[in-house]
Design a protein around this nucleic acid. Structure first.
Lengths: 286, 286
DNA sequence: CGTGTTTTTGTAACTTTACTACATTTAGAC
DNA sequence: GTCTAAATGTAGTAAAGTTACAAAAACACG
């Protein structure tokens, strides 16, 4: 959580003198970052060590570190107050909050990534004969997205959210084939079954799902994102965004691994898509 | 202009020793802000006054002031100087860079959002008789995702990436029906046609697309995200993530607008989904 | 309502950090 | 090669932040 908000929310835990410092900083944070500890202490009518202790209580290494964090907190625009959406919020507030929590979730996910399974995924996919992306519900659109990106590549790929289509693919799978199973919880029964079938057929099964879940047990390796809890109470939000970005990373890795000639192919695909679009010169009403 | 970019762009004007400092800071700006002038000077293999002069040349009052501005510059959504993926990057670096640029794009999108069309979208959808989400290519999976979320609601909704299905829906559309057209560029010919047909039939057409594009001309209103340029040269990455988050916001708005009884329904849907999953107690191999 | 204890706050010495003045080196011009 | 100017470094100084300890305030308990 952001420093300014922490000061604000932990206000009650401060001692009397520390509170004087807190009030001063919350009142004019922009000024505070340009002051020395002595000048700030004098202004708050407390001693310098009190200011120093105040900084430490907030988890900073000292006063300079505190100033640094405060400066960052200010630069961030920081509407970062209460992330939970409330009954009384208007659409603008809701939108900001959704963006904020997604940003927050992505940031946390980024920090807790393990590059080893990602590297393994890239290598497996570069070597793949054919690749399938399967998922249900919200994860179906993630799988859909992944396959869409692979459609530009020359490795045959399929997406399906159809139980029977998935099953048929799994039954027909062979060594060298890759199955990417996407699930937020890793507990969708149907998908676990499909993964197990493909596993038995010696296809490489990659899970983009929760670590140590039933699904991950049927995967050769699992790429997981460590998203805190989900933004929305009723459906996956931030977690699937993290999955999508993760897939972007895998795709970027794949593209790079394939070398420069491959990127030339991609450029040709992009060029070829132009025919389906109006050119930028087209006049519009506005 | 932002400090980091200034350092980068004024690189040529620095003297030899100052350039050493500049390189070091551009290479690891996060580290630099936690160092003392002495430690930074030693690392760059120059003297302390050289670092100090470097700071002054950039218009800072001194080294502490420089650190402060650098910290702010970093916190500010950080238009990272060179976040482009390079041939020599390993998978870990690629992943970090993809996450970084997505975070950056989302942050910029957040700051440039216009809440009016979002509010309009929420209101329109709450009042809708039935809703369709259409898109092609990468936007198809975005549309897919949106419909997936609406599947939990009681308003009938469809998704399609099939030209003919879309056309049939558009032809059958009536006042009170809502069509959400998703396109990154807003220039996909086929989708413009579909939008125009629905428009003529007096359905409400919402565009989640670029402002002032051919597609937005056939929409009653357009919700657009102002994502800088795309992360990846060959396919939409950050832009579609922004679209997804935008849709999340619309959905959150919709849910809230519908009131508490509606949220009870959602809770029931969630409960009902449990049957398709293994419960958390299920033992796993690990 | 005092006494012992704990917590809070301040004082003063100390350490670290940044800055300034000046000396030295380096690079370029003639 | 020598002179000049720019760049860089050295050493001393001033300022800032930190630590250790002592005083004061708040609190608990008889």
């Amino acid at each position: 959580m952001d420093l300014i908000n922490r000061i604000s929310s932990e206000r009650s835990q401060f001692s009397k003198s520390e509170r004087k410092v807190a009030e001063l900083i919350l009142h004019e944070p922009e000024q505070a970052i340009h002051r020395s500890i002595a000048s700030l202490a004098a202004l708050a009518d407390v001693s310098e060590p009190t200011v120093n202790r105040f900084c430490r209580r907030l988890g900073c290494k000292g006063y300079p570190d505190f100033k640094l964090q405060l400066a960052q907190s200010l630069a961030q625009g920081t509407p970062y107050v209460n992330r939970d959406i409330e009954e009384s919020d208007n659409v603008d507030q809701i939108t900001q909050k959704i963006f904020d929590s997604t940003l927050n979730a992505l940031n946390i996910a980024r920090q807790s990534l393990d590059s080893r399974p990602i590297t393994a995924a890239v290598e497996t996919m570069v070597a793949a004969r054919k690749i399938a992306f399967f998922g249900f519900g919200a994860s179906a659109s993630v799988a859909h997205d992944a396959q869409n990106k692979f459609a530009r590549f020359d490795t045959p790929s399929v997406f399906s959210d159809d139980l029977l289509v998935q099953r048929m693919w799994a039954i027909n799978s062979e060594p060298g084939d890759v199955l990417v199973c996407i699930s937020h919880t890793g507990r969708t029964k149907a998908l676990c079954e499909i993964a197990a079938i493909a596993y038995e057929n010696k296809a490489t099964v990659i899970g983009i799902t929760a670590a140590h879940s039933p699904l991950s047990d049927s995967c050769h390796f699992t790429v997981s994102t460590n998203v805190p809890e989900d933004t929305d109470q009723y459906m996956p939000m931030a977690s699937r965004i993290a999955q999508l970005v993760l897939i972007d990373a895998i795709i970027a890795g794949y593209t790079l691994q394939r070398g420069p000639e491959f990127r030339e192919k991609l450029a040709r695909v992009k060029e070829g898509l132009k025919g389906s679009r109006y050119s930028k010169q087209t006049t519009t009403k506005q």
